[in-house]
Design a protein around this nucleic acid. Structure first.
Length: 187
DNA sequence: AAACGAGGTTCCT
DNA sequence: AGGAACCTCGTTT
C-alpha cells in the first residue's frame, strides 16, 4: 500500500451525507468538514443501494446522516447561476494517487467540451493507460461535478457509465440545453 | 460487426 | 502472489 492508500479507503475521515432533489433525480451528497467528497444519483427506491455503493468506496470511513452539512452543496451544485470562479466549490478527493490525478484532469475539461480516455492517459504521461483511466473515471466519487460524463471513447462512442448510460445522456442533454440558453442570452 | 489480446491500476482471495 | 474486473484501444477474423 502506498502512503496515500490508507486514506484512499477512508480511514480517519468522517463523512456526512443526505439526499437532496436534483434535475436528475435524487442526489446523494456527501461531504467532510473540508469539502464535498461524494455525489451520486438515485432513482426512486434506489436510495439505499446507492448509499451502500458509496460506502463501499471508503470502507473505513465513519458515516453520519447530516442534511445540514450537505444542503448548501446541493443548492449550489445544481444552480448554474451560482457557478462563480471566485467562490469555487471545495472538493475533497479521497482515493489513490492515480485516481486523484485522473479526477483533477477531468475537472479541467471546460463546460460543453469533451475529452477521451486516451487523451487523459496521454496527459498523465501514460499514453497506454487508457483502460486504467477508464477504471479510475468509473470510480469517480463526485459524479457531475467531476465531469466524467464529458469523456468519450476515442472513436466517439459513449462507452460506459457506472450503472447505465441513461444518466450520462440525461446530463449531457441538460448541459447542451444550458449552453444553448446562455448563447441566446449573450446574443 | 464481433472477437481478441495487450494494457495500467485496483480490489479480492 | 495470483487472478479478475474496469466507463479502452488497435488489430484481426
Amino acid at each position: 500500500m502506498s502512503p496515500g492508500t490508507y486514506k484512499a479507503r477512508g480511514r480517519g475521515v468522517t463523512i456526512g451525507h443526505a439526499f437532496h432533489a436534483s434535475p436528475f433525480g435524487k442526489a446523494l451528497v456527501m461531504a467532510t468538514e473540508a469539502g464535498l467528497c461524494g455525489l451520486a444519483f438515485a432513482d426512486e427506491g434506489e436510495e439505499a443501494a446507492v448509499l451502500a455503493d458509496m460506502r463501499r468506496r471508503w470502507p473505513e470511513a465513519v458515516y453520519v446522516q447530516d442534511a445540514g452539512l450537505t444542503a448548501s452543496y446541493a443548492g449550489r451544485i445544481f444552480d448554474p447561476e451560482r457557478w462563480r470562479p471566485e467562490t469555487p466549490l471545495r472538493i475533497v478527493f479521497i482515493g489513490t494517487d492515480f485516481e486523484i490525478r485522473v479526477w483533477q484532469t477531468l475537472l479541467k475539461i471546460p463546460f460543453g467540451k469533451a475529452s477521451t480516455y486516451s487523451a487523459i492517459a496521454g496527459h498523465l504521461g501514460k499514453p497506454q493507460a487508457a483502460r486504467a483511466v477508464g477504471a479510475a473515471v468509473g470510480r469517480n466519487p463526485v459524479s457531475f461535478v467531476v465531469p466524467c460524463h464529458r469523456v468519450f471513447g476515442k472513436s466517439g462512442s459513449l462507452c460506459g457509465y457506472h450503472r447505465g448510460l441513461t444518466r450520462k445522456r440525461a446530463i449531457l442533454g441538460w448541459e447542451a440545453g444550458l449552453s444553448a440558453a446562455s448563447a441566446r442570452l449573450s446574443a
